[in-house]
Computed example of a mutant assay.
Amino acid sequence: MLEMPPMAAAPAELVDAPLTASDATSAVGTVLKQVIDVRLRHSRAVDPVFAKELADRLARLTERGGKRLRTAFACCGWRAAGGSGDTTAVLHTGAALELLQACALVHDDVMDGSLQRRGAPAMHVELARAHWAAGMHGSAESFGTSAAVLAGDLALAWADDLLTETALGTPHGRRLHEEWQAMRTEMVAGQYRDLRAQAACSSGVDEALSIATLKSALYTVARPLALGASLAGADDHALEGLRAAGRCAGLAFQLRDDLLGAFGDPALTGKPADDDLRSRKLTYLLAVALRLADATGDHHAAAALAPDAAPRSGHAVERMRAALKRTGARDLVEAKIAELTDMSLGHFERAGAPPAVRHEFTRLVQRATDMPRSRAEKAA
């Protein structure tokens, strides 16, 4: 019988060092590599083919990393609630969040049919190419999709294992695990509502906000803040304040992501700039543009943004971009991001965080929303 892999220890130099959110985004890479190396050794003992073709690919995607925002917010929540000293638990919680994010990205790319992720082929695309190169029978596309679902499942299993190990090793493990459980369900609910809205060709502003809150705001900021604070033994008042701050900041983050999905530079974002428009994904940006087009009688904009069963051509995508600008939706979303940022910083201050941590949170929100630093600091 195979032994389960032991929990990886944080590097000695990170255990008792003062840890800011900025430090955590770098330090978690070291911890994540340790964690993944342990999981890979176990995977090779289970089955070398599975380990080489699936687990190794998942490891590369995870270690390639993104902004590590969830780890940064978890650390910020920990410090806001008085966390100090041994950083092992908060760094391992951050690593679990990064593994969960890998699961979400792999599955999201499958569901959206996205071809690129973090500047490289999406997991299902890479696996389909491997199928074709190996001369296997059957559909390479079907194989790639099925195998990518398994890769996402593996990332979720690794994340759950790591979070459970962390919870068992801390006196506040029960609260930590409760926050984690809630976050996982919210994430799946948001993804389902996203799929459903696309299938129903939905256009409602309230529905777009509900999806953005479930799929991104809670998962990206609110729950990571609460996870970190739970490790420090935060009380209910502090946790509720941090969750409120996180919902506002996370929603601002998602609205910025919507703008990048429509107008961003793929060289900077690492993913195509027209996927959301080509598939007519329900975003707050799209819903607001349709509402404004109806209110002003802009029939050309309404037609450009209306549901269409056929995949959208490059010309149709450009018409959508023009409509988003002409209706004023792009400017309105920018204003909404600023409003949500102000609300988030107010909630965070009322949660009782020390001044230095409030400043750190302000910088994190500015980073997450691409808001000018002077604007964020003024809001603080």
Results as ranks from 00 to 15, higher is better:
A316N: 07
P48Y: 07
A212N: 01
R193W: 11
G152Q: 13
D161Q: 14
T327Q: 05
K67C: 02
S43L: 08
G346E: 13
L19Q: 12
D370E: 14
E165C: 04
R64D: 12
D194P: 01
G169T: 11
M187W: 01
D23Q: 10
S139F: 09
L115M: 11
R175I: 09
H172D: 01
P48I: 07
T341A: 09
D308I: 02
F73H: 01
T269I: 10
V188R: 06
Q116A: 12
G264C: 11
A293I: 06
V357C: 01
L227E: 04
G66H: 01
L332C: 09
V149G: 06
V31M: 09
G328M: 04
A12K: 13
E13H: 14
H137S: 15
R358G: 00
L286I: 10
A323R: 06
E349C: 10
A249Q: 11
F253W: 06
A379V: 06
A212T: 04
R118F: 09
A197T: 05
Q191V: 05
Q116Y: 10
A329K: 07
L69R: 04
S84D: 12
L14T: 08
D56K: 00
R312I: 08
T166Q: 06
L255W: 03
L277Q: 08
G270D: 07
T71Y: 00
G83I: 03
P266I: 10
